[in-house]
Structures are given as C-alpha cells and as structure tokens.
C-alpha cells in the first residue's frame, strides 16, 4: 500500500460521504408531511451507508474492469467506489428517465451492466447472483472476480449459506463481504445469530474467513487484497466480515430509540479518524483535505443538478422496458 493508495482511499471515502450528506439533505428537504416517504423529489425509502465507507473503499480499491459487485439495499458506497456514474445513479434515485433504470428502480435498485453493478432490496439476494456471475467468469477463463455484499442480518438468510456452499464446491472467484454494523434494523446481532462471527461460519464451508474489527480502511484494503488475489489466481472464495458502523438510522426517518450506543456514534466516525492519521503521518494537509472535500462537493452538485434537470417519466413510460 503506497501513500497514493491511502490518499485515493481517503478521497473516495470523502466523495461518498459528501454525496450521501447531500442526498440526506435533499431527501428531507421537501418531505411534507415528513412521514410520507413518497413525497418530495426523492421518493421512496432511503438507506444511507454513512460510516460504512471503509468497507466499500478498501474492497473496491482492488477491483478492475470486468469485476462485478452485487450490493444490498444500502448500496451507495459500493456503487460509487466501483465506478458507477454519479449522474446516472442520482437520476435513478430521483426517479428520472436518465437514471440507470430509467427511474423505475430508485435508490435500492441500481443496475449498471457496464460496471457489473447491481443491488437489491431483498436481503442476501445478491449472494446467489454473485455465484452465477463468478461461474460465468470462471467458465470464460477470465481472472475477474465478483464481490457479494450483505449485512450481518442478511447472513441469517438461507441464500447466504447456500451461496457459500456453492462457491466452495465450485471453487468460484467470489469475495463475500459482510458489513457487520451491529444492527439489522433494530435487531442486534447477538439476538438473531447463534454464531456471531461470519468469519467462523465461512470455516463451516471450508472457506477462509477474516474479520476486520475496527472499521479501518487500511485493514480492509489488506484483507480484501489477499482475498481478491486468492480469487483471481483460482484459489477460490473467501469471506471478509468488516465490523463497521451505521452512523445514521436504518432508513431515513428511523428515530433509533432502540440504540444504546447513539451517544458515541459520532466519535467513532471513520473519516475524521482516517484524516487525522494521514495528517499525523504527514501524508495529508488541512489544505489538501479542504480541496478534496470541495472537489467532491462540486461533483455532487453537478450530479444533483443533472438529476433535477432530467425528465420525469410519463405515464406511458411505465409500460416501457417491463417484462409483464
């Protein structure tokens, strides 16, 4: 890992954070009544990934053209880190015809065939799909890999276990990523999961499983690098569980009354922590940090403007591009 890698990872984390901070404002800006999630320019539910950037950035730093990601209902950080176009993604979130799915999907259904990026509101749904994509890569003889992302709650779905089993049996180039943010909506991990470490569950399928404990992008980078190398060289699947942090509610509008750790959430924010460590090491200055933030804000402004300026689908569009 070079100083450039670290700066690039910091920049990407800031880019994602500035994006979501803005989406958060825009989302709530025109919701009247506040509880009507269908109201306003961004219709529907909103699951933000703020605090979980290290998982996405540390993993995606190792991906190249042709590699695939299947993400869950909280997809923005992985989408941006994997190179999904910010304009098209934002337009989709705003339900516009220029969006990735022509405005039919919304924030949980971002499909980008060019970058092999998909996500889904059905939890753990991306795991079997990732196995399929990895099988295709393997059969085509490429050294591409697929990353399957899910939350620790989703790891209690049958699809998680079936996928680990299949990937192990067929020795598929998949990296299973579990983002353990301690909560599945309002359910703490230990209340739903007999084996609280998914790194251990991987062992049950003969797959190496690693748990990265402290939401540290460099630790994720190293673990993911090893797992991606392993997959590319035909050694098979690995699982990486990142103990991460949900800075915000499960969805926008979640009052989080169930959460005893709310008070300390802000001080555990991984981005200021990383900035401080880079500054201490002399690899980032205050001025650079300001520039990085300003550049991100400018890109985000442009994406929001693109979305807002894009056409809203007509009633006739509802019948276009649908199967049945």
């Amino acid at each position: 890992m070079t100083s450039l890698d670290r700066l690039a990872m910091y920049t990407e984390m800031v880019r994602i954070r500035q994006y979501e901070t803005r989406i958060l404002q825009e989302y709530h800006g025109d919701k009247t009544p506040a509880w009507d999630i269908g109201a306003g320019l961004i219709p529907g539910e909103m699951h933000l990934s703020a605090g979980q950037e290290p998982a996405a950035v540390g993993v995606c730093a190792h991906l190249k053209k042709g590699d695939a990601i299947t993400a869950p209902h909280r997809p923005h950080h992985f989408a941006l880190a994997h190179g999904v176009d910010m304009n098209a993604m934002t337009a989709e979130i705003y339900g516009r015809t220029t969006g990735l799915c022509k405005g039919k999907g919304g924030h949980m259904h971002l499909f980008d065939p060019e970058n092999h990026f998909s996500c889904s509101g059905i939890i753990a749904q991306g795991y079997p799909v990732a196995c399929g994509q990895a099988l295709a890569m393997k059969r085509k003889g490429t050294d591409n890999v697929t990353v399957a992302v899910a939350g620790e709650g989703a790891a209690n779905q049958g699809a998680f276990h079936e996928s680990l089993n299949l990937a192990a049996v067929w020795n598929l180039p998949v990296i299973f990523v579990i983002e353990d943010n301690d909560w599945a909506i309002s359910v703490p991990r230990e209340a739903s999961t007999a084996n609280t470490s998914n790194a251990d569950r991987a062992a049950g399928y003969g797959i190496p499983g690693v748990r990265v404990e402290d939401n540290d992008v460099e630790a994720v980078f190293e673990a993911a690098g090893a797992a991606v190398d392993r997959a590319r060289s035909g050694e098979g699947p690995s699982l990486i569980e990142v103990h991460t942090l949900r800075l915000l509610g499960h969805f926008e509008g979640d009052a989080q009354a169930y959460r005893p750790d709310l008070e300390t959430v802000d001080e555990r924010d991984p981005i200021p922590r990383y900035a401080a460590s880079l500054m201490e090491a002399g690899e980032l200055t205050e001025a650079q940090a300001d520039d990085i933030k300003a550049a991100a804000d400018a890109e985000v402004d442009a994406a929001i403007q693109f979305a807002v300026d894009s056409p809203i689908p007509t009633p006739e569009d509802a019948l276009q591009h649908v199967f049945a």
Partner: peptide, 8 residues
C-alpha cells in the same frame, strides 16, 4: 484466530 492469516 480470525485475522488475515486465514487467507494469506
């Protein structure tokens, strides 16, 4: 026993 040495 859950660190990166399970992969590397």
């Amino acid at each position: 026993a859950r660190d990166i040495r399970r992969i590397v």
